[in-house]
Each structure stands twice: as C-alpha cells, then as structure tokens.
C-alpha cells in the first residue's frame, strides 16, 4: 500500500498530541508501519503546531512535505489555510470553524483574513467544515475538540466503530471515557 499522510494542525495547547497518539494506536492494531512526528518545546506555547502521521507498508521519512498530505485535520481555521501547499491532489481538509487570533492580529500588526473557507474552496481545496468546539461542548468539554475531529475523520476510513472506540479507551483517562466517546460520535455523525 502506498503511504498515507495525515497532518494534524492547530494552535499549541489544543490537544493535537492526543489525537496523533490515538491514531497511531489504531493504525498499529491494523498492522501498518507507522511514523508519527511531533513538535515539543517552544512552539507549543500558543504557536502554530503541526503533527505528521504516516502509515503504509513501509514508512521512511517521519515528516510530510509540500504536496504530500492526503488529509489535513485542522483545529483552527487559519491553520487549515496555512498548510494548503502541503495538500496532495484530491486531498481532504477537515477543519474546525473556530478562529483563534494569533498575536500579530491581536496587536493589530496583521489582519485575520476574511472568508477563508470560501478562499480555500475557490483554490480547489476539498473542504469539510465542522463546528467542533460546539460539538465538544455538547459532549461535555471544550477540550474534546480533538476527539470530535477524529470522529469526523473516521468517516473517510473503513475501520470499524469498535476499532476506533478501543483506541479511545486506550488513550483517554477512564473518567473522561464517556465524554470522549460521545464527542467522537458527534463528530462522526455531524
């Protein structure tokens, strides 16, 4: 199988590391070779963060380069727009509608672009937009945005619901399990 590439992008602190960990666990049970590449340290402090998940028969590079991503899961709208050059032809972008102003916008040095959804579609991006924050809050916590987005991603893979649920059980603390399962279903069925 040709290597599949998933990029998880967002703002430091939004929970992308848990999402990649969960995906990795699921893919391992399916017998794939996998590489997951993360960034720790300074970039995590509210900066733009990106995690690469790659799987297939044999995966060499731990990173995804421009023109290679099959899927981009974005926790924030501007971050989805930042990485369009990384998309392969026919790639799918799943993005949260949430907007978080970066510091240059807060200070007035830059503007948060208008109508990013429209501009991405106009550029030929295959966009799947979801209000993951509201769904996460509906599930019981704004922190479950990551699981809502994974629920949405699950629609594009033929893994069973049980396989996803097992990966969730292995990745979240028991006391938050029901909340996360609900968040996943809300994302999957949205």
């Amino acid at each position: 199988m040709e290597t599949k590439n998933i990029m998880i992008v967002g703002v430091g602190g939004q929970g992308s590391l848990l999402a990649s960990k969960l995906l990795g666990r699921l893919l391992l049970t399916k017998g794939y070779d996998i590489k997951v590449s993360e960034v720790h340290g300074m970039s995590q402090r509210g900066g733009s963060v990106v995690t690469y998940v790659r799987f297939g028969d044999k995966v060499y590079s731990p990173i995804i380069d421009k023109g290679e991503a099959d899927f981009v899961i974005s926790f924030e709208l501007l971050e989805a727009a930042r990485y369009t050059e990384y998309l392969k032809k026919g790639a799918k972008v799943i993005t949260n509608t949430q907007k978080i102003n970066p510091m240059p916008v807060i200070t007035g040095a830059a503007k948060y672009p208008e109508d990013l959804e429209g501009k991405m579609v106009a550029a030929g991006v295959d966009l799947d937009v979801i209000d993951a924050l509201s769904l996460a809050e509906e599930a019981g916590s704004s922190k479950a945005v990551n699981i809502v987005l994974l629920g949405r991603l699950s629609k594009y893979f033929d893994f069973t619901l049980e396989e996803w649920m097992t990966a969730i059980e292995q990745s979240v603390p028991a006391k938050f399990l029901e909340l996360n399962k609900k968040a996943f279903e809300l994302g999957r069925n949205a």
Binding site: Q44, G47, E79, P102, P104, A110, K111
Partner: peptide
Amino acid sequence: DVIPPRPP
C-alpha cells in the same frame, strides 16, 4: 491572501 504568522 496573506496568512498571518502564529509565533509562540
């Protein structure tokens, strides 16, 4: 469009 940077 200009995508503003998001520094830490």
